[in-house]
Amino acid sequence: MLTLDYDRLDVRAGTTLLDLGCGEGRHTFEAYRRGADVISLDLSAKDLATTRTWTGAMDLAGETPTGARTAPVVGDLRSLPLPDESFDRVIASEVLEHVQDDAIAIAEIARVLKPGGLAAITVPRWLPERICWALSDEYHANEGGHVRIYKASDLAALCHDAGLEHTGTGHAHALHSVYWWLKCFFGMEDTPIVRAYHRLLVWDIMKKPRTTKLLERALNPLIGKSVVLYLRKSA
């Protein structure tokens, strides 16, 4: 389940790409499949091991072009163990909302991005997130939870201050907003209606029916769970 548009980010064979806060690698996989040289960075060695397992499986299945490379790195967004101006592309998906010092993390993204390089940052969108916070403290007030609600304009301003030009905006996962509203309304409990809606989402991800694709595309500008900022570092 991808949050950003890889064509818009122009990810292709030979692109050097950094996937920040990669988790178990859902954005790493598509970049690697396209032939990019990917560094997957996360604080969790366990999640990185899962990412490594799946990229290895992709190699065995012949799903990756010859010459593409990938490597896991344990690291903190606020102090990246990586050289200046070393990546053509940087992805930071659904991670800045967990970081207290987000301005420092964004400055690190700008530091490791090459001049003229592109980045994509995704965070929970203001309206769906605000509804979740209003319905449930448990949703966000826990260790490792969300520490802020972003307005896209505020995030774009932080990026501008770090030397990243905001070139475009996208929205994604409207159907998932409804799932989280149900979870928050019922106190994060795994109730029958929540389980039923989750089965619908899994079915949608696996089958990719045209009907739900069109529905989500129509709803994304209104209630998309995530907002995507596309950025460019000045040359």
Score class of each variant (00 low, 15 high):
82 L>C: 09
83 P>E: 01
83 P>C: 03
83 P>T: 00
84 D>S: 15
84 D>M: 01
87 F>S: 10
89 R>N: 09
90 V>A: 15
90 V>I: 07
93 S>E: 13
95 V>H: 08
95 V>S: 10
96 L>S: 03
96 L>V: 02
99 V>E: 08
100 Q>Y: 13
101 D>K: 06
103 A>F: 11
103 A>P: 06
104 I>M: 08
104 I>Y: 07
104 I>D: 12
106 I>P: 15
107 A>P: 09
107 A>Y: 00
107 A>I: 01
108 E>D: 01
108 E>P: 00
109 I>G: 02
109 I>D: 07
109 I>A: 01
111 R>D: 03
111 R>C: 01
112 V>S: 10
114 K>L: 13
116 G>W: 05
116 G>E: 13
120 A>Y: 03
120 A>Q: 06
121 I>Q: 12
122 T>Y: 02
122 T>H: 14
123 V>L: 13
123 V>H: 06
124 P>A: 01
124 P>Q: 12
125 R>I: 10
125 R>A: 13
126 W>G: 11
127 L>S: 02
127 L>M: 03
127 L>T: 02
129 E>C: 03
131 I>K: 04
131 I>A: 07
131 I>D: 11
131 I>W: 13
132 C>K: 09
133 W>F: 14
135 L>K: 02
135 L>C: 09
139 Y>C: 06
139 Y>G: 05
139 Y>N: 04
141 A>S: 05
141 A>D: 05
141 A>G: 10
143 E>V: 15
144 G>A: 03
144 G>R: 05
147 V>A: 02
147 V>Y: 02
148 R>V: 07
148 R>F: 02
148 R>D: 00
149 I>E: 04
150 Y>C: 03
152 A>D: 13
153 S>V: 14
153 S>A: 12
154 D>Q: 14
154 D>C: 11
154 D>F: 11
156 A>W: 06
158 L>T: 05
159 C>H: 00
160 H>Q: 10
160 H>Y: 04
162 A>Q: 02
163 G>L: 06
165 E>W: 12
166 H>P: 06
166 H>S: 15
166 H>C: 14
167 T>H: 01
167 T>S: 06
167 T>C: 13
167 T>P: 09
172 A>E: 05
172 A>F: 01
172 A>I: 01
172 A>P: 00
175 L>F: 07
175 L>S: 00
175 L>T: 01
176 H>M: 04
177 S>D: 00
177 S>K: 10
177 S>T: 09
178 V>S: 11
178 V>H: 08
178 V>P: 00
179 Y>Q: 10
180 W>H: 12
182 L>G: 05
183 K>G: 04
184 C>M: 07
185 F>G: 08
186 F>S: 15
189 E>I: 12
191 T>A: 09
192 P>S: 12
194 V>D: 14
195 R>K: 12
196 A>K: 13
197 Y>F: 08
199 R>I: 02
201 L>G: 10
